[in-house]
Design a protein around this nucleic acid. Sequence first.
DNA 1: GTTGGCACTCTCGTCTTTCGAGTGCTAATA
DNA 2: TATTAGCACTCGAAAGACGAGAGTGCCAAC
Lengths: 360, 360
Amino acid sequence: MVLSERKKKILAAVVDEYVRTAEPVGSKAIAQSAGLGCSSATIRNELAELVSLGYLEQPHTSAGRVPTPMGYRMYVNELMQKQKLSLEETEELNRRMNQRLRELDDTIDSVSRLASQLTDYPALALTTRTAVTIKRFDIIYVDANTFILVVMLSDNTVKNKLVRLPVSVDQRLVQRLSALFNSGFTGITDDQITPLLINSTERAADDTMGITSVIAAFAIEVLSDAGTPTSFVSGENRLLSQPEFRDPDKAHRLMGYLSGGGYLLPPDQTPTGAGEIKVLIGPENVAEELKDSSVVIATYDAGDNTKGMIGVVGPTRMDYSTVAAKLSILAAGLSRRLGSGDAPPEGLHNKLIVKGDKHE
Amino acid sequence: MVLSERKKKILAAVVDEYVRTAEPVGSKAIAQSAGLGCSSATIRNELAELVSLGYLEQPHTSAGRVPTPMGYRMYVNELMQKQKLSLEETEELNRRMNQRLRELDDTIDSVSRLASQLTDYPALALTTRTAVTIKRFDIIYVDANTFILVVMLSDNTVKNKLVRLPVSVDQRLVQRLSALFNSGFTGITDDQITPLLINSTERAADDTMGITSVIAAFAIEVLSDAGTPTSFVSGENRLLSQPEFRDPDKAHRLMGYLSGGGYLLPPDQTPTGAGEIKVLIGPENVAEELKDSSVVIATYDAGDNTKGMIGVVGPTRMDYSTVAAKLSILAAGLSRRLGSGDAPPEGLHNKLIVKGDKHE
DNA sequence: GTTGGCACTCTCGTCTTTCGAGTGCTAATA
DNA sequence: TATTAGCACTCGAAAGACGAGAGTGCCAAC
């Protein structure tokens, strides 16, 4: 059944009001706020119907109405859109965010921190990388017992490791190894680094000291690390400012889930198109701990096989429209900044595009 | 005034019991638990004196007694020690911790996470570095528009950055710059990198494209980053399992302070001797937000000018003896593992001592 | 100095009452 | 037929009443 225009307006008003006040909203309040010229009695009739349709519910008789997950869903899918256009005032927020993005490095923790600050909800950022390979392999000889491994990956991040040996190593051996790794270990994924490959490299380098396997172990570690999704939560404490989490046990459960690396999306629902916004309302979540919370997720594109997600968690009574708008602006900003890293947009000096490990 | 032996025993019993139950403890409970053969009436007299001496207080008449900060202080300074020896049962915990330490990388966030897990309180880890210098400077030429900066610092960590230029750079220029930076920029601190030094390097390298300043900016950034104390909080949510933080507002305030990078120690009280344990009880804290919480801090030595601190935050009713014991074991383990990085203790292969950036 | 006894105090949980917001229904109205 | 005003009704939240119980302080006896 399709809702009448008036029912839609009323439903939207209930959601808006409830999001604002966190209190069940009564017919009288709607009669005033939503600008449709009818009395509270009419509204009451409509509300009763919305309840029986499943969009609203009342905590108990003689209380106002509260949206059901289905009501929120309707709001997010159809009603909110109309407001979204009026969100162009957030342009100035956009500007503020861009300013922040400039100071921001591309590590996942600062992304999540920023998202949490902007939305005032706990935020979780994560990246999913696929099929990262080594683009370049360098070994810097420091002294006879020490060298530095430097690896540049296909996503243009650079990893390094300092290796110290209890034995002395010939500088020429290091050079041979460097050349061999650069030819043999580039362009392959971690599961292609087989004992066979390592052995043949060892022989080719004439390495009698087992250094090859140390370096290979590093290569495997870096590749598998880079292929593993990482996540970072921040702003858990903001949960506590929400009235629905005044119960410390409830808050504790959810926060525990979040900081335990709990995922926001079911594994199969990996992020798809960049720029897409996904909303999961209450029971739509698979994780038991999220069943009475909502999640808004934005996807951004961080270039070469790397997709990022920024998710925000809050009560089902969440300011979906604002959060979605903010997240999509943020995701767009991140895509712009991280994604097309190949076209340096600005002048020289420290406006150069630089990428690399965060400096701790 | 010095406390009688019996008063000390009673005070210790009150603290122990209160730590365990979080409820004001009455005379009767003590008469039973503490094995001193006297009746509750006697205890009551003693308790009354302890109150007037300032070691205990009662929330209201007809309630049991609760330790004051002064009472906790006495407990921590004198009474707890005697128990500490009996803590040798924690040997097996020690073993467990060592096992964890082996898998642990040396980044501050995993240290804090581990501390929080072990103690079940929120934990904050931070490092204070002083006077870090560059030990070695390498520039890896990738292609005409791209090179990688690799810097090895005096604390044996390695940092890197990928630089992409909108213009082509001659490989020989890169080599010249590498040599110049290696001679001119090593062994100095960030404030010694002056415009003068940069200019002379630029001229010496015959760099007409301003690349020198980009590299110098990286050097400054790395050095100042490394010199800046970093902190990392984890396990904030564990706060919520403490009865004294059932008030969401109170919990929110403290968690906000912690995740806002609030420091646990007053700036002048920087960590001194490694292995030292510091306890700050309630109002002894300077930060307003910590005034009714307690903090236990252990210092560890991470080698070359790098000191680390692990702090744990909880209610004044904190299990000081256990927390202190656990933290000191943890700190000792960290010092052992991170500190003397110059004597590779074990065999070859992947038991080599390796240090470096965490791989994201 | 210690102990048993006892009256006293104060909190906590339970129960009751009151208050008011909001409803559903009905009858009147456009 | 849709809307509205009116009104009795419901139910939860806040406020008070009250008994139970834990613990104290004090006193007199040991």
